[in-house]
Amino acid sequence: MNATPGLARRLCALALLAASGGLLGSACADNESSLFIRMRMAEKAEEGRCNATCNPSEGFWTEDTVDAAYLGSHSAMLLVGNQVVQRGDSDVLRTETSRVQLYEAEVRVTDIEGNDVTPGYVVPITGTVDPGASSEPGYNCADVLLIDGATMDTLRVQAAQRGGDVQVWATVVVRGRTLGGQEVETAEWTYPIRVCFGCSLCVDTSPPDCCKSSAGEGCEDAEDVEATCPGALGAVDCRALHMTCTEYIESFGL
C-alpha cells in the first residue's frame, strides 16, 4: 500500500524517535539539500576549445543567448555542489562513501508565462562530486543539455516569426548516487536563455562564391573567425555553412 506524503512524514518521524544513533535520520532527511546546482560556469575559448574552471570563485554567467539559426541544441556547464557528510576514516579503514556519481539531469523548458515549450526530457550526464571539507561543499561541473533538438526546432520557428528574441527558462534537476548507494538529487534550478534567429554576425568570403569552396581559383583567404563558447553570440564563417549567409538563412523558409 502506498503511503500518502503526510503519512510518510509521520512514519519517518516515528522511525527517527525509535532509532538509536542517527543512521536512519540520514535516510529520512530531504536529500535536496545534499546535492545542489550552484551556477552556470563561464566558459572561455582557449586554443579552439571551450574550458571552464569548476570552482565557485570563478566567473559565471547569469543568462545565455542562443542563435537557433546556427545551433541545433544548447548545452551548458553547471557547477554542482555536494554537501553529503564525509564518512571515510583511515584510522578504522573505512572507505569514503559520500562521493556522488552524477548520472542524469531532468530538464524542462518553459516560456516566460510558465508554459512548457515542449515536453520535458531526461538526459544522461557524467561526473563525480567529492564531499566537502569542514563546512565547505565539494564541487564539480556537469555538462547539461539545456535545450534539446525538438525544443530548439520549436523556438527557431517562434523567433523567426517574431523577428526578435524569445525568452525562455530552463529548469534543471540533477540526480546522482553516492558510493554508499544513496540516491540524491538537487532542488529545481532555473536559468534564463534568450533565443534569437539569425542575430549572429555571419561573415561571407570575398568573393561570396568562395563560401561554397574556398579552394577555388581566385578566392581570397578569409580571416579566421574566433571560436565562441556556447551561450554567447559570435561570428559565423560562411565556409562552415557551404553557402552564403543570406542563402543559409533563406534555406529555412521561415
Rank of each mutant, 00 (worst) to 15 (best):
S206H: 10
G88W: 03
G22K: 05
T244S: 13
F60K: 15
V66S: 00
T228S: 14
L16P: 00
G88F: 04
V84M: 06
R99C: 09
V184S: 07
S200R: 11
S134Y: 11
E106H: 14
A222R: 13
A170F: 14
E185L: 08
T190N: 11
V117R: 12
Q182R: 12
C210E: 10
D64A: 15
T97R: 05
V184D: 06
A160V: 07
T53C: 08
A13K: 12
A42G: 02
G72R: 06
T53E: 14
T128L: 09
A232C: 01
G180A: 08
S34M: 11
M77I: 00
H74L: 00
V109P: 02
C238L: 05
A142D: 00
R162K: 15
K44G: 00
G6A: 15
P207Q: 13
G218I: 12
Y248K: 12
E183K: 06
T151P: 02
L78V: 06
R9Y: 06
T126L: 04
A150L: 11
Q158N: 05
S206D: 15
G164Q: 03
P192N: 05
E220D: 11
V174W: 00
V157K: 15
S75L: 04
V122W: 10
R194I: 15
E32V: 05
A133E: 10
A52E: 01
E185W: 01
M1R: 10
A235Y: 00
S135Q: 06
D237W: 01
V123L: 10
Y248S: 05
S33D: 05
E220C: 03
D237Y: 02
S98A: 15
N140C: 01
D130T: 09
E250L: 04
E32T: 14
R177T: 11
E226T: 10
T205S: 13
D111P: 10
P137I: 03
E58L: 03
A29V: 13
V203G: 01
G72V: 05
E250T: 03
E113H: 12
L7T: 14
T128A: 08
A13Y: 08
P137S: 04
D30R: 09
C210K: 12
N82Y: 01
V184M: 08
T171M: 05
D67R: 01
L11R: 14
F197K: 02
C199S: 11
R94F: 06
Y70D: 01
E183R: 09
V122L: 10
T128R: 02
G88L: 04
L145D: 03
L71E: 13
D111I: 15
S206Q: 11
M1V: 12
G88V: 04
V66N: 01
T126S: 13
P5M: 07
A187G: 13
G198S: 07
I193R: 04
V225P: 09
V168H: 08
A215N: 15
L146I: 11
G120F: 09
L233A: 04
D116K: 12
P137L: 07
Q182S: 09
P124T: 12
I112K: 10
T205H: 05
E220P: 04
G25I: 06
P131N: 13
F60W: 09
E183G: 04
R177V: 13
E220S: 14
G6N: 06
